[in-house]
Design a protein around this nucleic acid. Structure first.
Length: 484
DNA sequence: CGAGGAGCGA
DNA sequence: ACGTCGCTCCTCGA
């Protein structure tokens, strides 16, 4: 069921560094009250909650509600809720999230079973192949056994160490893949068994008799004010082609002749950067409906061949995430020096972006915080650290945070407005998922057009006085696999 | 049960 | 010595 713990967001406003608060800890510290633990009623998770004696279960549940309400009353009294962001975003969002959770998501059991068979075949095939190449049987799911076989028995070249041995992650293995087929096989094996255990078996376990799953959205665990999702985590369902796309295809409409409609913000972060920095070149490119990666490519390389566009995309990406020249070089496979030249050229192309970042860091150095478009603050106490590594990392964070956080707010505001729209128009269609910059709806047949037009409009127009609109891509399909 | 390694998404 | 975070799975040793 939906969690209402999120009413405790104000706690995080006051103490953003405290990230592991729970209801019972708050009850203890504010009311000196010891709550009944989940483990107490379920005898250390041995008993399924639905089998717990009703009297105990009722006590436990009622206490949850009681304490939550008490905390809610307390925050009201203390006028914590006068906070602007809280009033305009977080509190209205709670209602939306609650409704979204209660809508549930329908999953096709048949589709999953099909995929299961497919994956099991692949896993079996690869398992045999790997045993053959290794001349022995071992547990491929154990990194320890993998490196023992690869590096001690087969004498493959070692590369990176971990705390407890040798790294055998996909980066390492793919470097060996050309010369040693077993490495590629292990990567594939991992890929398929990940899909099988996490997304097929895992999802089936969480389905009820009506093939519905109930995810929980949590608004208080991330440092960037994004949402997170658990049981199942709907925010990391694979998007790749091939078998993994079948997982997404298993998410379907709840009724016959309903459809899944997805609205995707296109490059929301780059657009937010353009809006916040007021860089004319960037804004102009968006106004002309240019493909922004091609445009960057044109400005940096004087052409937009697919090769250079790819590079430009990585560079745009770099700006958003604030990785170093070192990190960029690793991403695009060039030299550090070359990466630095690209970065410099980017700033030459979009000079106001550079100004914006410099200004942000300057303010942070002085006031110890950075701010989003909506006035959320993030304190970065180590911005003036004497260690230059730490300082640089803090600066990257200061550059990155206003964009990321503002983007998260954009989606949240859109969700609130869309939910309002659906309610006011008495529409049957439901908002069922949020995946960071994507909103997914289960759409009633006769509402397709009205939803497509209005939701797109609402999402694109969230930033009311911005010099450009945001851009949203829409697609509709029988399932979540859609047209991607 | 918890740490560590790995891999999925944004 | 560098992108980051959050979630989930598996193994392995306590």
């Amino acid at each position: 069921m939906a969690k209402f713990y999120d009413t405790l967001i104000w706690e995080y406003i006051k103490k953003p560094w405290q990230r592991w608060l729970s209801l019972d800890k708050l009850a203890k510290s504010y009311f000196d009250y010891q709550m009944i633990g989940y483990k107490d009623v379920t005898e250390n998770n041995k008993v399924d909650f639905k089998d717990v004696d009703l009297m105990f279960a009722a006590d436990y549940s009622a206490e949850d509600v009681y304490i939550t309400n008490k905390l809610y009353q307390k925050q009201k009294k203390e006028k914590i809720t006068d906070n602007e962001v809280l009033q305009s975003i977080e509190i209205p969002l709670l209602e939306v999230l609650k409704d979204m959770e209660l809508c549930w998501v329908k999953v096709s059991r048949d589709k999953l079973k099909w995929t299961w068979v497919l994956l099991e075949n692949e896993v079996d095939r690869l398992e045999k192949e790997i045993y053959k190449l290794a001349w022995e049987e071992f547990n491929i799911k154990s990194p320890k056994q993998v490196w023992e076989v690869l590096f001690w028995k087969l004498w493959l070249p070692k590369w990176k160490k971990t705390k407890t041995g040798w790294s055998v992650n996909s980066e390492v293995l793919l470097n060996l893949a050309n010369e040693f087929p077993i490495a590629k096989d292990i990567v594939d094996y991992r890929h398929y068994s990940k899909l099988l255990s996490t997304y097929v078996e895992g999802l089936i376990k969480l389905m009820d008799d009506n093939d519905m799953v109930y995810t929980s959205y949590n608004a208080t665990v991330t440092s960037t004010w994004r949402l997170s999702s658990t049981d199942p985590n709907l925010q990391n369902i694979p998007v790749w082609n091939g078998v993994s796309s079948q997982i997404r295809e298993a998410f379907i409409s709840r009724w016959e002749d309903w459809k899944i409609m997805a609205f995707d913000y296109s490059q929301v972060e780059v657009r937010v950067l353009a809006i916040m920095s007021w860089d004319e070149n960037l804004l102009w490119a968006f106004k002309q409906w240019f493909d922004i990666h091609s445009r960057t490519s044109e400005l940096i390389f004087w052409d937009f061949s697919s090769e250079n566009r790819k590079l430009a995309k990585a560079i745009n990406f770099w700006v958003i995430y604030g990785i170093s020249a070192f990190g960029l070089n690793k991403m695009i496979n060039s030299w550090v020096k070359q990466a630095q030249i690209y970065i410099d050229k980017f700033y030459e192309s979009y000079p106001k972006v550079k100004d914006f970042f410099e200004k942000t860091i300057e303010v942070a150095r002085e006031k110890w915080y950075v701010e989003t478009m909506f006035g959320r603050r993030r304190y970065i106490w180590w911005i003036n650290d004497s260690n230059s590594l730490i300082r640089q990392s803090a600066e990257r964070e200061a550059m990155n945070m206003p964009i990321q956080w503002t983007s998260a707010d954009v989606v949240k505001k859109a969700m609130i407005e869309v939910a309002d729209f659906l309610e006011k128009k008495w529409l049957k269609s439901k908002m069922i998922m949020q995946v960071h910059d994507e909103l997914v709806f289960d759409v009633y047949k006769w509402e397709e057009e009205v939803l497509e037009k209005n939701v797109k409009g609402i999402m694109e127009g969230v930033l009311k006085n911005a010099p450009i609109e945001l851009k949203v891509d829409v697609w509709i399909s029988d399932n979540w696999g859609g047209a991607k």
